[in-house]
């Protein structure tokens, strides 16, 4: 079983933020916006998204740039950009503790996507639907059950591992991101997606709803 801790609104000076801790890995995500866009990134009809991923140590390189691109493509279809023409929304993902192995990005991508959701809701950015991400690892032994939110060791040992992101809209789930790595068959993948869907719906109902509810309670504490 994995341990999960989510704190929304931890940064005082950004419009939305989230501290996300899972299995000892830690990420802090901030959202600023909608704000005035720089002239070169201004889009006349929609919002321009600026995603920055920062590694635990050192400078970001092509590995982080790839993550940024994946997150940006995902958020672009979720955020209602037409509500904020000529504006910018900045999303900064800063990893604090991560099992950083250059060849595996699954855990980091998963954490970044999940924490971005809370930070965006905290910032009050308009979104078409909610989204939840999960990592599934297929253990090497035949017939053993799938591992959700695996540790880095489990990922390295696994036959294949997958980052699956579902969007949730009235209990209707759609895959919006799938990153697979390793050896697997079509049939196997179908099972994984079905299992991941159930997992994502559970997280949406139990974790996301609770976190937002407690955030709202905190925001309206002065209301009698």
């Amino acid at each position: 079983m994995s341990s999960l801790e989510v704190h929304a609104g931890v940064l005082g000076n950004s419009d939305g933020s989230c501290l996300y801790v899972v299995n000892g890995n830690k990420v802090i995500t901030s959202v600023v916006g909608p704000i005035e866009a720089k002239a070169r990134q201004e889009l006349p009809q929609t919002v321009s998204l600026e995603v920055v991923v920062r590694p635990v140590t050192g400078l970001s390189n092509s590995r982080e740039k790839l993550l940024e691109e994946k997150i940006r493509n995902l958020l672009q279809n979720i955020i209602i950009g037409f509500k904020y023409p000529r504006q910018t929304i900045q999303v900064v993902v800063q990893f604090l503790i991560a099992d950083g192995r250059p060849e595996y990005t699954a855990l980091e991508l998963n954490m970044a996507i999940n924490s971005a959701f809370y930070a965006l809701v905290d910032a009050g950015v308009a979104m078409y639907k909610s989204f939840v991400s999960t990592v599934v690892a297929v253990p090497p032994e035949q017939g053993s059950s799938l591992i959700f939110d695996p540790s880095m060791e489990q990922i390295v040992a696994s036959k294949s591992h997958h980052v699956v992101t579902y969007s949730v809209e009235h209990d209707e789930c759609k895959i919006i991101l799938l990153e697979s790595n390793g050896l697997f068959e079509m049939k196997e993948l179908k099972n994984i997606l079905d299992a991941a869907k159930i997992q994502c719906l559970t997280v949406h109902e139990d974790v996301q709803r609770d976190v937002i509810e407690s955030k709202l309670q905190q925001d309206y504490i002065w209301k009698s």
Partner: peptide
């Protein structure tokens, strides 16, 4: 009631 993006209103 608490509503999340995409919920049924």
């Amino acid at each position: 009631s608490v509503i999340l993006p995409g919920d049924d209103l």
